[in-house]
């Protein structure tokens, strides 16, 4: 589904360019869940931004093939229509735009790109009701403006609700666990687990192992300084939980010698 080869990217800041990704290699197949862990500043969120086409990031080398297409050639909205979804670390508030209107517009744009008829209001409302239950979204939240006045937990649940509505093939969850208490975490993880299938895949970016108790990954990758420095099974996450990222310092020392 997704093949990332030697991906290098920099960000353009007012103080000059900064190289963040320094050669990422990753393959994701349908039905798989990949966790990407690593200390702050290792480039996890940058990877999410590059994959979804956020402005301000420049790919300097490498390629990303998604479903046989050169992903980096596509605009953010085209990537979304092809089935890529990002659950934001910091969901954006959009005053004046209701959740209902926002999702209806999004769904119909995606359908239009596939040559499908727009969804009728009845179908849409039915779908919304069903999916809202997945992550305990109150009907009242749907008519409110997108994320405006939502608590941190509500915003994260709303991201997973949008994911459920748009039915993407590849979902990237960027620190979805940050700022969630244990009950909210269980709700969010429960929603994700119900949405998993053999046809879709998840990339779960997280700083802590906690979330991976509930969303169990097939692979765990450790990122450090813009590279994946270790890959393992779900047990790697537990090891990190116990020993922290100390092994990275060992790697570094070795590298320096």
């Amino acid at each position: 589904m997704l093949t990332i080869k030697n991906l290098k990217a920099k960000i353009e800041t007012s103080e000059g360019d900064k190289q963040i990704l320094k050669g990422i290699n990753l393959t994701v197949n349908p039905g798989e869940t990949h966790a990407i862990m690593g200390p702050n500043g290792s480039g996890k969120s940058t990877l999410a931004s590059v994959l979804t086409g956020r402005e301000g990031y420049v790919v300097t080398e490498g390629e990303v093939i998604y479903d046989g297409k050169d992903l980096l050639e596509l605009d953010p909205e085209e990537r979304a229509r092809e089935g890529i979804f990002l659950a934001f670390q910091y969901p954006i508030e959009i005053p004046g735009v209701s959740n209902v209107n926002f999702l209806k517009t999004a769904i119909n744009e995606i359908r239009k790109s596939k040559g499908e008829e727009p969804m009728t209001s009845v179908e849409f409302l039915k779908m919304m009701k069903e999916k809202a239950k997945l992550v305990n979204i109150e009907p009242e939240m749907l008519s409110r403006y997108v994320n405006v006045g939502f608590s941190g937990g509500e915003k994260k649940r709303n991201e997973i609700f949008q994911l459920a509505m748009l039915e993407p093939k590849l979902s990237i969850l960027d620190e979805t666990d940050s700022g969630l208490d244990i009950d909210a975490l269980k709700i969010v993880a429960g929603g994700v687990n119900k949405l998993k299938s053999n046809d879709n895949a998840f990339i779960v970016i997280t700083h802590y192992q906690r979330l991976l108790n509930y969303i169990v990954p097939d692979f765990v990758h450790v990122m450090y300084e813009g590279k994946i420095v270790r890959t393992g099974g779900k047990e790697l996450a537990l090891e990190l939980e116990e020993n922290g990222y100390d092994f990275i310092n060992d790697l570094k020392e070795n590298a320096e010698i």
């Binding site: 979804t52 402005e55 909205e77 926002f102 999702l103 517009t105 999004a106």
Partner: peptide, 16 residues
């Protein structure tokens, strides 16, 4: 970016 990341094109995102 948030709006576009949900599949809504540039003009429609602006209009929204």
């Amino acid at each position: 970016f948030y709006i576009k990341s949900r599949g809504i094109g540039d003009k429609d995102a602006k209009s929204l």
